[in-house]
Simulated assay, not measured.
Amino acid sequence: MAPHGGRKLLKFLILFENSSLLFFPGQFLSGRVLVELEDETPVLGLFFHVVGEGVVRLLKNGRQHISDRENYIDFRMRLLGEPGQGPVLLSPGIHSFPFKLGLPLGLPSTFLGKHGWVQYYCKAAFREPAGLLHKNQQVFIVMNPIDLNLEPPILAQPFHCEIEHRLGLNCFTSGPVSCRVRLDRGGYVPGETIGIWASVHNQSRVTIKRTKASLTETIQYMAKNRVVQTETRELASLNRGKIKAGETDDWRNEQLYVPPLPPTNLRGCHIIRIQYDVFFQIEPHSMEKPIKLQLPIMLATYPLRSDDGTLRRKRGAHYPSTLPIFRPWLDEKTFD
């Protein structure tokens, strides 16, 4: 980035040793601030600031309004100059000022959403005695992975949900619709499939139009400890056809694919929450509302392994070699 200001400053860059700009909590953020000068230049100070922050921002009357924010990193250091001292004279040519910072454990992952974000960046400021201030900024990405092998073992077990619901205007003469749903486990990674078993017994007098299973992502934005905005989108779905009155339909290990998703771990962030659910939905032919069962699941970064360390490959799994950093569907319409 070419600096604004005087002709003397030819280059002012923040360069990371890790050129991918992707870091894990606990790693070192190291690099250098590079200054190239055309002439001998007096400098009052070179300042360096590392910031990690979460922000929830809502539009109010068409104007941007920050509802809440929190800090994860706020690290400042002076790379050149002493407080209260006079200017330092730098010779023409290239000057390199190293920096190194251990990233704290437990940082939430970088996240960009419609109404908020978790972002990490470095800022450098180069101050000359005449009052000239040159600034530069460099974003970096933090990925805090979730390893299914380190989560509670219950996530590797199947889990169930059931409901009984009466359809029809005369609930006393019409029998119930009963439904049992089971997922093969409670935790998955992108590229795997969710195995679904279900039994829907229609004892009502109403035909069921279809049954549907969908994987959804719900993002909640918080401000002052309350949810101020929610967005939910469907990531994948499966359908089966009608069930007439008195009939039963069974789902037998139907496979719902988990698409490639950014590996988002927002533990440590208190103003944005992200949740994944499998919804099983029964849609009557009548005007009645669909019957919904909600099964919360965990989506992780690293898949389950056997005791000998080998990958427990799921049937139908296509583990992607890379995952997107951001959500490509951010600009798509959300549904309620």
Rank of each mutant, 00 (worst) to 15 (best):
E40T: 14
V88E: 12
R78M: 14
L107T: 00
L89H: 08
N71G: 10
I66T: 12
G45E: 13
D39Y: 08
L80C: 12
M77H: 04
E82N: 08
W117I: 08
L58Q: 06
Q64F: 09
P92K: 05
G116Y: 01
L37E: 00
G131S: 04
E70R: 00
G54A: 15
I66V: 13
L90Q: 08
E40Q: 15
L58F: 03
G52L: 01
G131N: 06
N136G: 14
A130Q: 07
L44D: 13
R78Q: 15
K114G: 13
E40W: 10
A125C: 06
A130Y: 04
G131I: 01
H115A: 12
H65K: 07
L112K: 11
A124T: 09
F97S: 05
R78E: 14
E53G: 10
G116R: 00
L132A: 09
Q138V: 07
P87R: 03
Y72E: 01
V50S: 06
R127G: 06
A125Q: 13
R78N: 13
I66P: 02
N61M: 07
K100S: 15
G93C: 11
L105F: 13
P108W: 03
G62D: 05
V88L: 10
D68L: 02
L37D: 01
N61A: 11
V43F: 07
L133F: 08
Q64M: 06
N136F: 07
G84Q: 04
N61E: 14
Y121K: 12
G45H: 03
R127P: 01
F99P: 02
I73W: 02
L79N: 03
P83E: 13
V88F: 08
M77P: 00
L89M: 15
E82R: 11
G81M: 03
P87T: 06
P92N: 07
H115L: 10
Q138K: 14
E70Y: 02
F99C: 01
E40M: 13
M77E: 13
Y120H: 06
F126S: 00
L79Y: 01
H65C: 09
V43W: 08
H95R: 02
K123M: 09
S91N: 14
K100M: 12
S96R: 11
E82K: 11
G52A: 04
V50R: 02
L101F: 15
H95I: 05
T41F: 04
T41N: 03
G116Q: 01
P98T: 02
E128A: 13
G106C: 06
F111V: 09
L132V: 09
L37T: 00
W117A: 14
K100G: 10
S109C: 11
E40G: 09
P87K: 05
Q137H: 05
N71A: 12
H65V: 03
